[in-house]
């Protein structure tokens, strides 16, 4: 099973990027990572991701090109 899933939502109007992200996250393996090619920072998504137990990193490649990596937060419970 591949651990890295990539989707490009740069040319999708809202709310389609979120639909694509949700759909990809729902099938992501436990140790997997989703890499999203986005045209902007989906700020409100970040807060919701953290609340739902996901971690993220964002890298800005140019003015309108962002690479967002999403993966499950490490379980710190005993």
């Amino acid at each position: 099973m591949t651990l890295l899933t990539e989707i490009d939502v740069r040319e999708l109007p809202p709310p389609e990027p979120m639909t694509a992200i949700l759909s990809a996250l729902s099938t992501l393996p436990q140790q997997g990572m989703l890499r999203v090619h986005h045209s902007r920072q989906p700020y409100p998504l970040y807060a919701k991701l953290e609340a739902a137990g996901w971690a993220y990193e964002c890298e800005q490649l140019s003015d309108h090109y962002f690479l967002i990596s999403i993966y499950r937060q490490l379980d710190s419970s005993p």
Binding site: P14, P15, M18, L25, S26, L49, A51, G53
Partner: peptide, 25 residues
């Protein structure tokens, strides 16, 4: 419609099963 859809979508981050209830835009 966008806000309604987005707020419902964000609830699915915790429970992906809920995606089935979200209507088409």
């Amino acid at each position: 419609p966008f806000l309604s859809y987005t707020h419902l979508q964000q609830r699915c981050l915790i429970n992906f099963e809920a995606m089935q209830y979200i209507p088409n835009m």
